[in-house]
Simulated scan of single mutants.
Amino acid sequence: MIPDDDPSRSLTVADPDDPGTTYVSLVGNTYAMLITGEQTDGRYCLIDMRVPDGGGPPPHRHDFEEMFTILEGEIEFTFRGEKHTVRAGSTINIPANAPHHFRNASGAPARMLCMCTPAGQDEYFLRIGDVVADRDAPPPRLSQGEVMARRHLATEPAQAYRSEFL
């Protein structure tokens, strides 16, 4: 039987150009938090990712599903050691626990939507990244020492967010 409607939950309209959107700079990428776990009762989050040429996270894995839809450009995904180039219009799903990473090796900027289910990745990114003014804000300039400190900052809470770096 389907439960009754919960009127305390409202309709969410995600617009990356909305002035209330939170943007996070992380590993050279800019992530717009479109729909948060707080808005979905923890069911999922949706992140608009702008990935410059050469951008992308290090190899990692986590115990939640992650789905990417490429909106602009192309992204090279490495899944269990095998590379796959995914172009605009395509969607790729990363199963929970599978080792993976992505990199923009196209020579041009790329953009994709990332949905994680259940939510939590949105909170993790907010915790370890830098909130920036908008999607076009440059990433903060970090010294080598600051880069190392950021890596430690990212690794320390990863387990609490059901993730590990490889």
Rank of each mutant, 00 (worst) to 15 (best):
P3K: 02
P3T: 01
D6R: 12
R9C: 08
R9I: 07
R9Y: 11
V13Y: 06
P16V: 09
D18I: 09
D18P: 06
G20E: 13
V27Q: 15
G28Q: 03
N29D: 15
A32M: 09
A32Y: 07
L34Y: 07
L34Q: 12
I35L: 12
T36F: 10
G37I: 11
Q39H: 09
T40P: 11
T40R: 13
C45R: 15
M49L: 15
R50H: 13
R50F: 12
P52T: 08
P52C: 06
G54F: 01
G54I: 08
G55Q: 06
G56F: 03
G56I: 04
P57G: 05
P58A: 03
P58F: 02
P59K: 01
H60A: 05
D63K: 07
E66P: 04
E66D: 00
E66A: 00
M67S: 10
M67N: 11
M67R: 07
L71C: 04
E72G: 01
E74Q: 03
E74D: 08
E76R: 04
E76V: 02
T78P: 14
T78L: 00
T78G: 07
E82Y: 02
E82M: 03
E82H: 05
E82S: 03
K83W: 00
H84L: 07
T85D: 02
V86T: 01
V86L: 00
G89Y: 01
S90K: 12
I92M: 08
I92S: 02
N93R: 14
P95F: 10
N97H: 14
F102K: 03
F102D: 04
G107Q: 06
G107W: 01
A108R: 10
P109D: 04
L113G: 02
C114R: 09
M115T: 14
C116T: 12
T117G: 12
P118F: 02
P118T: 03
A119W: 04
Q121E: 13
D122N: 01
Y124E: 03
F125L: 06
F125H: 06
R127M: 11
I128H: 07
G129P: 08
D130S: 06
D130E: 10
D130A: 11
D130Y: 08
D130W: 09
V131H: 07
V131K: 12
V131F: 11
V132T: 05
V132M: 05
A133C: 06
A133I: 05
R135G: 12
P138W: 05
P139V: 03
P139H: 06
P139T: 04
P140W: 04
R141Y: 10
E146A: 08
V147Q: 09
M148R: 15
M148G: 12
A149E: 10
A149I: 03
R150V: 07
R151T: 15
R151I: 15
H152Y: 14
A154D: 13
E156H: 13
P157L: 05
P157D: 04
A158M: 11
E164I: 13
F165E: 11
